[in-house]
Design a protein around this nucleic acid. Structure first.
Lengths: 106, 106
DNA sequence: GGGCTATTTCGAGTATTATCGAATGAATGG
DNA sequence: CCATTCATTCGATAATACTCGAAATAGCCC
């Protein structure tokens, strides 16, 4: 993964509002959640939520699929995985720290 | 870890410039690197670099220690670990995805 | 097509952030 | 104490981003 792409994704998760949206989608699992449901849960104005979702989609962290009039949003788990991998690589490339090892052991 | 704290750290890593600084420190390992050395490597103006380092320090991702006239900067590995843990928890709390498992197996 | 629901796009106001040169502060060595 | 080196703070500018109401679009059902 390129550094710039990673930075974009990290930035996308770097605002509490968006991180909460993303967390909600992650917790919803592979079935995803309609936009309206997210809005109900988090109490965000529709236009604001749409804006944040768009940003998350642009970075590839979230996908959308149309079902009739509602749009289902899903967390893109492989993308998250890649991002975690990038961060872990940074950490353990030359450092020899126990970071990833701890995670794996836990 | 609180969501807001995680968001602050993610935001800190969310700009290419800062991510590069952080990566440089991570790769430097526990010995860290003087501010001037980072500047040489990345070619960033001193004031800009100082600004970014300050942000990284505020979020707890980087620490500084004075050695005579030079300031040694170090990546805070436990903080990074906590952040990775937070993201992994988000991912696997209810979703049952294979994310962390894949990382561990790799 | 008319009405209805779900969601996005538009537009504007506000706030935060990045960048960098110049000036300032901190610490050592003579 | 003065000169020197290392790094931060100041100040100003430009760019980017957040927020949200109003208007527009997409798709279904009758």
């Amino acid at each position: 993964m390129k550094l710039e792409q990673a930075a974009r994704q990290l930035e996308a998760l770097g605002k509490p509002t968006r991180l909460e949206v993303y967390r909600t989608l992650v917790r919803a699992g592979p079935n995803g959640l309609p936009v309206g449901r997210i809005q109900e849960r988090l109490g965000i104005p529709a236009s604001t939520l749409s804006h944040h979702l768009h940003r998350l989609i642009l970075t590839g962290l979230v996908t959308q699929e149309r079902q009739a009039t509602t749009l289902i949003c899903r967390a893109n788990f492989p993308a998250m995985n890649e991002l975690l991998g990038f961060l872990a690589d940074q950490c353990c490339a030359d450092a020899g720290c126990g970071a990833a090892a701890d995670e794996a052991a836990a």
